[in-house]
């Protein structure tokens, strides 16, 4: 499983001594390339902590993480430049699109490639292809404030995909959208996962989209339980 993500016995403890809080208590997950899985759980269950560990934003306390066939964490980070790891190997889609307001759509998408040292032309060409695939190419020169909520979320998905990362972490990507648009976004995620062989982890509370996942991880008290989903076609 070269392009997926594997998490083994992941622990995360905040603080020390009596005030220590163990947010993750041995999380195990495995998401293959082209697969979209749901990660659900109540507030305070450790979803955000897990997402931050997977996103190389905070350091786990223990465990192992293999991303795209490379062990990135094994008791400690094996990667020095976590920023470059996030840029090249992890895509992020947030609840709100968080597009950069002073960049137009195409540069919002192309920015990651530019940061990686690709030329502006090449970055924009690749960004344009994704925008076309996501049906927002006609808004390439628009500013984020000129887009609808659905369009903004599609641009955010394009931004997450543009560097062809092995994994995309989507944090409540359909929360601000109505049912129709939410399902459309999830459909895009499924299609893109297949097309780009990307593993996508969708953190969600959204009852409308949970049935679309073939596998769902439930997280409760810092531990995950895997469950088969309905895998309903959209």
């Amino acid at each position: 499983m070269a392009r997926g993500i594997i998490i083994e016995d992941l622990y995360k403890k905040y603080g020390e001594g009596d005030t220590a809080v163990e947010a993750l208590k041995g999380v195990n997950m495995q998401v293959g390339p082209g697969e979209v899985v749901g990660l659900v759980g109540p507030s305070g269950s450790g979803k955000s902590t897990l997402l931050k560990c997977l996103g190389a934003v905070i350091e786990p306390t223990n465990g192992r993480m293999i991303l795209g066939g490379e062990t990135i964490y094994d008791q400690k980070w094996n990667i020095k430049d976590l920023g470059a790891l996030r840029r090249d190997s992890i895509g992020f889609v947030f609840q709100a699109p968080y597009l950069i307001p002073f960049l137009d759509v195409i540069d919002n998408v192309a920015l990651i490639l530019m940061l990686a040292g690709k030329s502006n032309d090449e970055s924009r060409k690749r960004a344009m292809k994704l925008l076309e695939a996501l049906d927002v190419a006609h808004r390439a020169k628009a500013m984020p404030s000129q887009l609808s909520g659905g369009e903004q979320q599609r641009v955010a998905i394009a931004r997450a995909l543009v560097s062809h990362p092995p994994v995309i972490l989507a944090d409540e990507p359909t929360a601000p959208l109505d049912s129709e648009r939410a399902l459309a976004v999830v459909k895009i995620l499924h299609e893109m996962a297949k097309q780009y062989e990307t593993a996508i982890i969708v953190v969600t509370h959204d009852e409308k989209i949970i049935p679309t996942f073939k596998r769902i991880y439930h997280i409760r008290d810092g531990k995950t339980v895997e469950e088969a989903g309905e895998g309903r076609e959209i």
Binding site: R86, F92, L115
Partner: peptide
């Protein structure tokens, strides 16, 4: 701040 957090999340270097 939010945009800077996003920029840092997607790997923008501090010097940039």
């Amino acid at each position: 701040i939010r945009e800077i957090a996003v920029l840092k999340l997607i790997g923008t270097k501090n010097r940039t």
